[in-house]
């Protein structure tokens, strides 16, 4: 068994226009930089993207937005992307904002064979509008449906040719859940190791979920909000 592909371009060659694509990452942390760049080179259009954020102007998914590749997006926070805000306010992009935890659980459910589930989140807000609610015990819950994608593009720290993956620090975020919830999961890693080198007790994503794996050619890993010790006491970005 060998799931290794040699380049990001080869990895995304099967991604068709109009696909539903999940992209891992939180802000610019743990995003599949190399796969996004390859997708932009491929110029597929009409994509339905699912990702917590939408990159920033000029990096990450911001590049896909600027290339006009995205028809609709489901996420929880897009405040770092000014271009997106403009497109949405002009009605040129179909944006669905949902609570971050509900997003994560809908993806997890999609990979776990659970079609829908109840959560307390969003009750009495626009998020619950048009959705079934149900009183269980003394609390009312909102029915949320699973999310599934044609393709998941994810980023891990290390992996092997069987697709086993480990992550590093907060670059894990949505990546493991998304790995489980797509027909085709493509993982990019910083380092490819031999099967057996990853401690089986430490593997976060077992290889069964991963169809292709590649070593990213380069990593820029830009930091969105520089915050070092001299800045203590100052407040940071938005919600």
């Amino acid at each position: 068994m060998n799931k290794v592909v040699q380049s990001a371009d080869e990895a995304v060659a099967a991604v068709a226009s109009g696909s539903t694509v999940m992209l891992g990452g939180f802000g610019l942390c743990g995003i599949p930089e190399n796969l996004i760049a390859a997708l932009v080179r491929r110029r597929v259009t009409g994509l339905h993207t699912i990702s917590n954020n939408m990159g920033v102007d000029g990096f990450g998914m911001g590049l896909m937005l600027e290339a006009g590749m995205i028809a609709s997006h489901i996420g929880s926070y897009v405040g770092e992307n000014r271009r997106l805000e403009t497109l949405v306010l002009k009605g040129e992009l179909d944006l669905t904002l949902i609570p971050q935890g509900t997003l994560a659980e809908r993806i997890r459910a999609g990979g776990a064979g659970i079609p829908a589930f109840y959560v307390p989140t969003g009750l009495g807000t626009v998020v619950a509008e048009g959705k079934e609610t149900r009183k269980i015990g003394d609390r009312t819950y909102v029915l949320e449906h699973a999310l599934h994608a044609d393709v998941a593009l994810i980023k891990a720290w290390k992996g092997d040719r069987l697709g086993n993956l480990v992550y590093r620090k907060t670059a894990r975020n949505f990546n493991p859940a998304m790995a489980t919830a797509a027909d085709l999961t493509i993982a990019e890693v910083e380092e490819l190791v031999e099967p057996g080198e990853l401690d089986p007790d430490q593997i976060v994503t077992p290889g069964i979920y991963v169809n292709r794996i590649l070593v990213g050619a380069t990593y820029q890993k830009p930091i969105e909000s520089k915050f070092i010790q001299a800045a203590i006491g100052q407040s940071g970005g938005a919600a």
């Binding site: 926070y77 997106l84 609570p99 971050q100 935890g101 919600a239």
Partner: peptide, 8 residues
């Protein structure tokens, strides 16, 4: 247009 993030 920013989003609720994890607040809800």
């Amino acid at each position: 247009v920013k989003g609720m993030g994890g607040a809800m």
